[in-house]
Amino acid sequence: MGARLEELREKARQLRISSLMLAHQAGSGHPGGSLSAADILAVLFYHHMKYDAKRPDWPDRDRFILSKGHCTPLLYSVLSDAGFFPKEELATYRRLGRLTGHPNPKLPGVEIATGSLGQGLSVGHGMALAGKLDKKDYRVYVLLGDGELQEGSVWEAAMSASHYKSDNLTAIVDNNRVAQDNMTAQLKGIEPVDKKFEAFGWHAIRINGHDIPSIIDALEEAAETKGKPTVIVADTIKGKGVSFMENQPKWHGKAPNDEQLKQAVGELQNA
């Protein structure tokens, strides 16, 4: 397991570097929320989820939905590395073609379009309901932002998922405490997030979202929890791993320039 953890940490590091390079190359994009969720996606895609990148339509696959759809630097990095599409295609990020700024439903590995916050949990729940109808044992994972939880539709979906006892659905909140123009708590506080979900009938687990063993354990606990959906509230740092980006709303949706990229990659390599 020790070697495995090291491998996952290295994957997360590479995903962070790739995310920054993509935003830099495109001259736009969302680095902050990509860096905060890198450890979570590393565990999902390189350790936990059941899928076959060569058969993206495999009916029994686990499904992943990036409800906080702006974090395509991270999503496209992991999908291409996992083999859903060629890495060379990353050169077209945010240019004509399939790699649109927010997840393109035509891209292998993308289950549904997102980009308008607050929609992914309902869609994920629909997929979970279909899984139960079809007696399949796949699981559905939906990654949400903390700011996104201010959308009322998320809570409609939260009510539905517990009502239907959809224990094949797991929501993960990338709780980096920053939204776009401000800290989430300044806009409209969402805490205590775990207690809110509990009150909505969910099993809630709260973890340090950068601690790989905790992420692994939480996903396993979610899979073992029966009769209700599970939320993993992952406390994270927006811009994690890059000193000048951490906790800064201004790095929500801005690309690093040449110099900033160099410094950022240097910090990530030496961390």
């Binding site: 009916p59 309902s122 869609v123 729940h125 629909g126 997929m127 079809d134 979906a157 539905s160």
Partner: peptide, 19 residues
Amino acid sequence: MGISEQDMVGTAAGLAKCG
């Protein structure tokens, strides 16, 4: 789905994407 039209439409999309 109860009185939650947005959730209903999203849930329908998820079901549809599973065939």
